[in-house]
Structures are given as structure tokens and as C-alpha cells.
């Protein structure tokens, strides 16, 4: 958490994370170049750059897309999610090298503007086999640019978490565009069952991980509740671990009920920073701590401790015979609620 904006708030973990990204990217390019010039020595440098960086961006995109569901399936992956933006920006730069070189090679130094040429050189938009695949790659690059350019917390705070999240969910549109770009482009000419199989396997893995994560979340949402005179009966005190929470779905909202220091408190489950699941967080120094980036909220009023200003909605709880009841009507964000003692 930080009050002012810095380009990157470095810590040892981030430095190590970025070193691994840089070394892996370099390794990819070196391996690609060695294999190409060993088995295909007539290749040109330009083609090598276009192909190496394009395929690197695709490999990185698969890893990026796997991190989200892996973190939902196993919280030991959360530290990777914490710094995923650095991986995303690095992937954008790889894609930019691919796109920039391709744009120059194929569309620059001609009789029309390169952007016009991109859209108008091949007008077979009504044909699948002859489709102008470069347009798909260009649109994907625009999305990746928008994501990379707004990846900083400054934009997150100013666009609002909801808008920012929606913008960054466009990564799935970019993924589809990139897959179509490759299948309608290079795979039409450079057909190999191994490279095609690699991307199909990647698609199956990414889809499988997302489905598994969704299934797990659905199980959480099916935590049983029962209505009793306007209050919802949720669980017993023993069912919640100390300094942890249990999540329940009330109407359209997920609510996290925390147990700490002999008290119970309920707050809205969604972190104001990036929409992280607060119910998977922990009470640290008396504050609910988000598992994604460590944003904190006081459990009794849903407010971030001063000088921070984030607020989430709170809920009233009632305890009867060690059974917890919750009032499903959310209180205004940051409203003080007397914790329930057990």
C-alpha cells in the first residue's frame, strides 16, 4: 500500500521476479536464434526477430493467463499474482517488437500510410483462409498497449477498480485475437503439427485451469445459508478459523465473515484495489489483509487504517447458540458496526 505514486515500489521479491522474467526472455531469444541458425542458416535477422519475439509473447501470454486460476486454486501461487503486471508489461514489449518489425517490414516504405496498408492491402475479409490476419494481431497489440499503459496503480485509482478490471479483462479478447492471428496467418503457410499442437495444448490447459477455478468458486458460493426473520443463518463460530474468514453469497454480493480476538465482523468480500477476495485474506495487526497486494481494512468499519482512504461495505451480525446470523442488507461503505463477541 502506498499514498503517493512511484513508477515501481521495489522490494527484493519484485527484483528477483523481474530478474527471472528478463533471464527467461533472453534465454528464449538465444535458444530460438541458435536453433534457427543451426538448422535453418538461410534465415534473415528480420524474420528471426519477428518470429522469435512473436512466439515469445505467445508463450508469455499463456503463463500470464495461467497465474490467475492457479492462484484461485492454490493460494501458494498468490506471490506470482502479486507482481503479474511486470510480466504483462514485459509480454507487451515482446509483442511490440514483433508487431513493430512486422509493420515496418510489410507495410512501411510503400505508396500508402502503413496503417492504411495494414487494413487495405489484403481485402479478403470475407474469406477465412485468405483473411487479413495481420489486422487481428494489430488489434490484439492495441489491447495489450492499453493494458500495459494503464498497468500502474495511478490508473487503477483514477479509472476505478471496476473500469480498470474490465479493461484488463480484455486480455481474453487479445488472447482470442492472437490465436486467430496465428492460425489464420503463419499456420496457413508454416504448418507443423508440433507448433499447432503446442498452441492447442496451451488453450486446453488455460481453459481447464479457468474451469477448475470457476468450479471451486461455485463450491464457495454454495455455502449453505438459511433465512430467519430477515436475518440469514450462515454457520457456527467453530466453522471459521481464527484470524481468517468464511465467504457467503448473499443475493449478488459475496460477504466475508472474519473471526479474530474473540470477535466476529463481516465486510464486503471485494478489495477496492484490484477486486481481490478479502475473504481469502488474513487478519494481520488487527486488519483484514487482502491476499493479492496486502491492502488492509479494519474489520469493524471496513475502512483502511489512516492515512489510507479505501472503504468497503460492512454488515451486521448476530450470534445465537454459537450460530452466526447476518443481516443481508449492506451498510454504507465504512460504516462502524459493533463486533459480535463469542
Amino acid at each position: 500500500m502506498a499514498l503517493d505514486y512511484k513508477l515501481v515500489i521495489w522490494n527484493s521479491f519484485k527484483k528477483q521476479y523481474d530478474k527471472i522474467i528478463a533471464v527467461s526472455m533472453l534465454l528464449y531469444i538465444v535458444v530460438f536464434a541458435i536453433v534457427t541458425f543451426t538448422f535453418n542458416p538461410e534465415s534473415s535477422i528480420e524474420t528471426l526477430i519477428i518470429r522469435a519475439f512473436g512466439s515469445l509473447a505467445i508463450v508469455m501470454l499463456h503463463i500470464i493467463l495461467a497465474i490467475g486460476p492457479l492462484s484461485r486454486l492454490n493460494d501458494q501461487f498468490l506471490p506470482i499474482l502479486y507482481n503479474r503486471r511486470h510480466l504483462g508489461v514485459s509480454m507487451f514489449f515482446a509483442a511490440l517488437v514483433h508487431g513493430g518489425f512486422s509493420m515496418f517490414q510489410f507495410h512501411a516504405l510503400g505508396d500508402v500510410h502503413p496503417i492504411y496498408s495494414l487494413f487495405a492491402s489484403n481485402m479478403d475479409y470475407n474469406s477465412l483462409i485468405n483473411f487479413p490476419f495481420q489486422v487481428l494481431g494489430f488489434l490484439a497489440l492495441l489491447i495489450l498497449f492499453a493494458m500495459a499503459a494503464t498497468s500502474h496503480d495511478f490508473f487503477l485509482a483514477n479509472l476505478s477498480a471496476r473500469v480498470w478490471k474490465r479493461l484488463h479483462m480484455l486480455v481474453y479478447v487479445a488472447y482470442v485475437l492472437i490465436i486467430a492471428h496465428v492460425f489464420l496467418g503463419t499456420f496457413q503457410q508454416e504448418t507443423s503439427p508440433f507448433t499447432i499442437g503446442f498452441l492447442i495444448l496451451g488453450f486446453i490447459t488455460i481453459s481447464g485451469l479457468h474451469l477448475a477455478a470457476a468450479f471451486k468458486e461455485r463450491k464457495t458460493d454454495s455455502n449453505k445459508t438459511e433465512e430467519d426473520e430477515g436475518w440469514i443463518k450462515v454457520c457456527t463460530v467453530d466453522e471459521i478459523e481464527n484470524d481468517r474468514a468464511k465467504v457467503f453469497k448473499l443475493a449478488n454480493d459475496r460477504v466475508a465473515i472474519f473471526k479474530y480476538d474473540g470477535k466476529l465482523a463481516a465486510i464486503h468480500n471485494v478489495c477496492k484495489h484490484q477486486g481481490g477476495p478479502l475473504g481469502e485474506g488474513k487478519i494481520i495487526d488487527g486488519c483484514v489483509t487482502c491476499p493479492w497486494h496486502g491492502y488492509q481494512y479494519l474489520p469493524n468499519n471496513g475502512q483502511s487504517p489512516p492515512p489510507y482512504t479505501e472503504k468497503v461495505a460492512t454488515y451486521q451480525l448476530r450470534l445465537k447458540d454459537a450460530i452466526i446470523y447476518i443481516n443481508p442488507n449492506a451498510l454504507e461503505e465504512g460504516t462502524e458496526v459493533e463486533p459480535v463477541y463469542f
Partner: peptide, 25 residues
Amino acid sequence: FVWICLGFTIAGAFLFSFFQKPFKN
């Protein structure tokens, strides 16, 4: 996870470079 990703990355680099059609001289 890092080792698996590294393996995936090297496998990708090898496959995408090795299975290119031969270039003309």
C-alpha cells in the same frame, strides 16, 4: 512453478524455431 515455466519457455523456443520451413538461399 518457475522451473516448469522455464521448461515451457525453452520447449516453446525450440518448437517454434525448429519447425520453420527451410529458407531459400
